[in-house]
Amino acid sequence: MATRPSPGRASGRRARDSLLAASFLAPAFAVFAVFAYYPLYRLVYLSLYRPNRNTFIGGSDEWIGGSNIIDSLTSSTFLRSLAVTAKFAVLTVPMGIILGVLLAVAADRKLRGIRIFQTIFSSTVASSVAVASVVFFTLLQPEAGLWRNVSWLSIKQPGSALVAISTTAVWQNAGLTFVIVLAALQALPSEVREAAELDGYGPVRRFFRITVPLISPALLFLAVVLVIHALQAYAQFEILKPTNDAQPLLYKIADPEGVETISSRAVYSLGLFVVSLIVSIAQFGLLERRVHYGE
């Protein structure tokens, strides 16, 4: 914010500004250094070296290198949990978006009492994954759940466990998907909303031809958020306890039963990082090219 530039003063000011900027940025960077950047380094290290806990006796960490990475990435544990995670995403993301769009389209109109419906639809935003899991326990519990006789929603059958768990996630995400799609619909310029009624399109065609392309950035954003949610799914699986073959990647990373080695868990963590990275990069790529901007 220099007003009168004189050379000596300007450089003094610049130094002072840099110092100020550094001190303003320092707290955030300090937290990230310890709990975000360092862990990334540490995960790479743990994938390559087996830590030697007997540091008093001496002896350094043991190089296990590439073989650990390859063994972990090709282990049935990793491949199966990755497949479960991918399947979980397939089961929850499209359904989540469809439900969100359905709720938002229904609630995007001027009707008496519409605010009540909007509040109900957004209510699951207040639910945590743990609460959602307890809530769905009343339906999915093998002994006393209301859906205990619905065979394709059984959490104790290998073929249906994941489908059953996905109902929890779809329900819990409904609030978020509804809120985002509704906001996108309401942000459409009124000319667009009115013009579509005049050009002779039926409501269904109008919706798919005009509305969907215009809200596609919001839908894409939602898809990415839901995929990331699916990649990070954990609590539902610990609380609802489906069959062992329906455990996702984060379950193997967190490893509540303590059956995995730290070296393979480190590789799994990096695997999760890389998959999330790919999803995010794909989002940017799609946003750049395909998705229609409604500006």
Binding site: F32, F35, P39, R42, L43, Y234, S269, L272
Partner: peptide, 23 residues
């Protein structure tokens, strides 16, 4: 600085969990 700060969104607690527990 901006990239490094916002880039931490790619390092959520789920990814950094085991290293952070160790810390």
């Amino acid at each position: 600085a901006f990239a490094l700060l916002v880039g931490t969104l790619l390092l959520p607690i789920e990814v950094t969990l085991i290293a952070n527990i160790e810390t």
